[in-house]
């Protein structure tokens, strides 16, 4: 194993002019600076799949930007695939792939194939190698029918499959994924997670991912870094966190009459109203199936929803426990 990413004490300070109040306030702006990233250090080994999570504004995208070379840090060191990202941006670009869930890198009016072909030239790829990779991706990602379709006519799930393909065609050793499953339906999410995980595993690819979906992290990554207020607060294997924080489900039951009290181990009741009961289910102690069977047996159930706890909540729990253990 060798380190693909090493960062040491990385800092990024933004300063902006804050306008003063009053008529002449605009003429005497005050300069305010904020520490977006405040001394972050970690190392990622080759083949690791790491999730970087944190609340909005925690500094995770600033960190990813610095690691991919499109933002210069205020201070600190970083080495990505042996290069300093902000000094060797173009050289690094040949060796990394990036997917933005909320931003397309394909040319909308044209068939996906044309975009792929354009990327082949941008990354100076040999035609034979490129065709072989594309062929493999088309097979594993079921793209055959999409290749000749203009991208703007695709569904979000189809487009995302093409986006990921586009970011892998030059065979990058390191993949950055920013919210790769955002806005997708359950099936599309599952297909994308499977693909990313299997592809990375088969090719020894290193993955760095940010997401607001706990399932992305559970199913794709083997390590989680939690960032808050510009600092790393937790850095642990996913397995360890899964046992403590990720093994939870939220079950919401709608009733048309009297509510029930479920007395099962691992089930706690949350804020509920006249028609709904919201349950926190610890899947280490009880299976979701058991909870639902018990509820149905009681009768009067109109609707059932099973959800993962929101990422903010998970982060909060992880963060709270990290603080108490310290």
């Amino acid at each position: 194993m060798s380190a693909v990413i090493t960062i040491a004490n990385l800092r990024k300070q933004y300063s902006y002019a804050k306008r003063g109040r009053g008529l002449f306030g605009g003429f005497s702006p005050q300069h305010v600076s904020i520490e977006a990233v405040d001394g972050v250090s970690f190392q990622v080994e080759r083949g690791e799949r790491v999730a970087v999570i944190g609340p909005n504004g925690a500094g995770k995208s600033t960190t990813l930007k610095m690691l991919s070379g499109i933002l210069e840090p205020t201070s600190g060191e970083a080495s990505v695939l042996g290069l300093t990202p902000w000094r060797d941006r173009k050289a690094l670009a040949y060796r990394i792939g990036v997917v933005f869930g909320q931003r397309s890198q394909l040319w909308g009016e044209l068939p996906a194939r044309d975009s792929f072909n354009q990327l082949r030239h941008i990354y100076d790829q040999d035609k034979a190698v490129f065709e072989k990779r594309l062929g493999e991706m088309v097979k594993r990602f079921a793209l055959a029918e999409l290749l000749d379709q203009p991208v703007h006519r695709m569904s979000l799930g189809q487009r995302m499959r093409c986006e990921i393909t586009a970011s892998l065609l030059h065979g990058p050793g390191l993949l950055f994924l920013d919210e790769p499953t955002i806005g997708l339906d359950v099936t599309a999410k599952a297909a994308i997670r499977d693909f990313i995980r299997d592809h990375a595993r088969d090719h020894g690819q290193t993955v760095l991912l940010t997401s607001h979906d706990t399932r992305d992290i559970e199913l794709v990554c083997d390590r989680v870094i939690v960032v808050n207020a510009g600092r790393v607060v937790v850095d642990q294997p996913t397995d360890q966190l899964r046992r403590r924080f990720l093994g939870r489900k939220i079950v919401t039951l709608l009733f048309n009459g009297a509510q029930i009290v479920l007395d099962l181990p691992g089930v706690t009741r949350r804020a509920s109203d006249a028609h709904a009961v919201v349950l926190d289910v610890d899947t280490r102690l009880v299976r979701v199936e058991q909870v639902i069977t018990a509820a149905l047996a009681h009768g009067g159930v109109e609707d059932i929803t099973i959800e993962d706890p929101p990422m903010e909540e998970v982060i909060h729990d992880i963060y709270a426990s990290a603080v108490t253990t310290q």
């Binding site: 040949y94 072909n117 030239h121 100076d124 990779r133 065979g171 050793g173 090719h203 020894g204």
Partner: peptide, 24 residues
């Protein structure tokens, strides 16, 4: 697949040209 494909010097100009042509 993690092999890198950095452009070799002599080819750089022709590769740059082919990328421009492709954009065209």
């Amino acid at each position: 697949m993690t092999s890198t494909h950095l452009p070799s010097r002599p080819n750089e100009a022709s590769r740059a040209a082919s990328a421009l042509l492709s954009a065209f």
